[in-house]
Design a protein around this nucleic acid. Structure first.
Length: 569
RNA sequence: CGGGACGUAGCGCAGCUUGGUAGCGCGCAGCGUUCGGGACGCUGAGGUCGCGGGUUCAAAUCCCGCCGUCCCGACCA
């Protein structure tokens, strides 16, 4: 490819709407252009990177026996109503009406298509297992699309679905894919982690998230400073601190705290540490009122709470709920709460006493509050969000919180979808059973953004060679010097013949522009051919990521470039 | 959905407070010079000032409504 012919106009300045590094640089380097919020055109350079990721994914999927097919994006609503997801997905699913007034949707994921398909084709246990995958655009009407390709309303995803006769077989299929996923992300050159995570709305039991650590990432994970613990923040637990020696229970009495509805305000007013305040959070769990007690310097992890009450939905009390229970928002304490409200406390609460809690009347708190004497706890559970510095459950080391981008997520679904969809096979005795399913997603377009987040510097992108749109750029750093032009052409041809993905910057631009563009686009290796070098019989090779520059004899130019590429990450 | 900001040439922005001929930089076109880290000079093209309504002799500028984009929050494979 010659840059003079490539549809790729770089931007000198950061686009106003781009904030995230990946968004900014993918725009500037002419990989993508925005069409509307969360929807992008993929330009030729961007598409080459996408195709490389697709190729890696295809190879690994095919190698572990999965078969590629293509399912529609435009979907009938009926199967979605059968699984309850037409409602559950809500406004996040794009829904439209065809000319006959029938409801149809754009696919956010494809269980509802693949399960009936397999049921129609593979009616017998003899036909199983099978694993089907596709690489196709997905549609989700995100409440807030953001950060360019990181959270779009349209995104490219590899989704796979395995079908097995029983749970053991399903777990075997799952493990094969788990290993394939490791190979995919390793081959992409990404820094990544695997953690067991919260199942979210897809449901199912076991699931693993593949996370690419990046500052901008929205998914938090927890590690131990000693490297022996790794978990999704939503699932992380901690080693409980030694129970502090509790002072003699003090006399409990009400104090006026006008307007102090927040932990911070109460702490300031009464001059006590936030950790001494007993925070009482109220939730509705499928009609059951639940009070959750945590120390004031802690947050409730709603996902942990939700798991205790699954499948009921857990949501924070709204104004009406406070009123219905006669509670004063901002001044709630556990003292005297009726049996109709379940009282859950985090395990941290058991180790301390003489709390400051809401007095259940406006503008008052109660000090010297102690469990049993002043309030009851129905259950102690692990309910707090882990914070930086908490103790590792394995060795007590300090826990650290990191942010990451989820680039892959795999789930053991069991019969969650096959059952409502009546997707069944006959066993040896002719008895019908729902398939044991598992599903496996990789965000292809998200990997582009995640890699850009992980691999860039002040000058632009620094792709791993597995993902770069081209491996080598031959920069012709002169316009009129005929011998240089001829040598650049020769090196370009020589690299092409060796199968290197090479681009020749033969544009009528100044050398400075070409250098800046080469850095911005992030080819792993640059070969600089100019008058100065050619007259001395040399060319220069620059490794983009390391910045290392070497000068090589002109006769060995192709070898030098190949070596630099070999050495590049 | 709640809070905030922004919308003026392909891109980045000024002008708006205090209404009166629509500007700057980059990019683009032509000519010349230059030619290894976003070159220089001269000439030139390019804008319903997001859309609709209102106030006014006069609106990019003031008022009302709508649309769009981004950021924070809530939510989320």
């Amino acid at each position: 490819m010659r840059l003079s012919h490539l549809f790729a106009r770089t931007l000198r300045e950061d686009p106003a709407e781009a904030d995230a590094a990946s968004h900014r640089l993918l725009m500037r380097a002419a990989f993508i252009r925005q069409v509307m919020a969360g929807v992008y055109t993929t330009l030729p350079l961007g598409l080459r990177t996408v195709r490389k990721i697709e190729a890696i994914v295809r190879e690994e999927m095919d190698a572990c026996g999965a078969q590629e097919l293509r399912m529609p994006i435009l979907l009938p609503s009926d199967p979605w109503k059968a699984t309850g997801r037409w409602e559950a997905y809500g406004d996040e699913m794009f829904k439209l009406t065809d000319r006959h007034g029938r409801e149809v949707g754009l696919g956010p994921t494809q269980e509802e298509v693949v399960a009936p398909l397999v049921a129609g084709e593979l009616p017998s246990y003899r036909d199983l297992p099978v694993n089907l995958y596709q690489i196709e655009w997905k549609y989700r009407d995100e409440r807030r699309p953001r950060y360019g390709l990181l959270r779009g309303r349209e995104f490219l995803m590899k989704d796979a679905y395995s079908f097995d006769v029983d749970e053991d077989a399903m777990r075997r299929s799952y493990d094969v894919m788990l290993q394939a996923y490791h190979r995919v992300f390793a081959r992409c050159g990404l820094d990544y982690l695997v953690v067991e995570a919260d199942p979210g709305s897809i449901g199912g039991d076991v699931n693993h998230e593949f996370m690419a650590p990046a500052e901008i990432g929205e998914d938090l994970y927890v590690t131990c400073e000693n490297g022996d613990y790794l978990a999704d923040l939503e699932a992380a637990s901690q080693h409980l601190p030694e129970a502090a020696s509790v002072d003699e229970p003090a006399k409990s009495e009400d104090v006026a705290t006008p307007g102090a509805t927040s932990v911070a305000a109460v702490a300031r007013l009464l001059e006590v540490p936030e950790s001494q305040i007993l925070k009482t959070m109220l939730f509705d769990a499928g009609g059951q009122a639940v009070a959750v007690l945590v120390p004031g310097d802690r947050e409730v992890n709603e996902k942990k709470l939700a798991r205790l009450y699954s499948p009921s939905q857990v949501r924070a009390f709204d104004e009406d709920a406070f009123e219905a229970h006669g509670l004063v928002r901002g001044f709630v304490g556990p003292q005297g709460l009726g049996q109709e409200i379940a009282i859950l406390a985090d395990r941290l609460v058991s180790g301390a006493g003489n709390w400051v809690a809401g007095a259940n009347r406006p503008d008052h708190h109660t000090v010297g509050v102690n469990v049993t004497r002043d309030f009851r706890v129905d259950r102690y559970e692990d309910l707090v969000q882990i914070s930086e510095g908490d103790r590792c459950p394995n060795d007590g080391g300090a826990l650290r919180i990191g942010s990451s981008i989820v680039v892959g997520h795999i789930y053991q679904l069991g019969t969650l979808y096959s059952e409502p969809l009546k997707a069944t096979f006959a066993d040896e005795d002719g008895i019908e059973h729902p398939y044991q399913m598992a599903c496996y997603g990789i965000g292809i377009s998200r990997i582009v953004a995640a890699a850009a987040e992980q691999f860039h510097d002040d000058d632009g992108l620094t792709w791993p060679k597995a993902l770069a749109p081209f491996e080598v750029c031959v920069v012709l750093a002169t316009r009129d010097h005929e011998p240089s032009v001829a040598q650049a052409e020769a090196i370009y041809e020589g690299l092409s013949e060796r199968g290197v993905e090479v681009v020749l910057d033969d544009r009528a631009e100044s050398a400075g522009v070409k250098f800046k563009d080469a850095d911005l686009i992030g080819y792993p290796v640059q070969v600089v051919v100019g008058k100065r070098g050619i007259e001395a019989g040399t060319i220069d090779v620059k490794a983009r990521r390391s910045g290392e520059r070497t000068t090589a004899p002109l006769a060995a130019a192709v070898d030098a470039a190949s070596r630099a590429l070999q050495a590049a990450p």
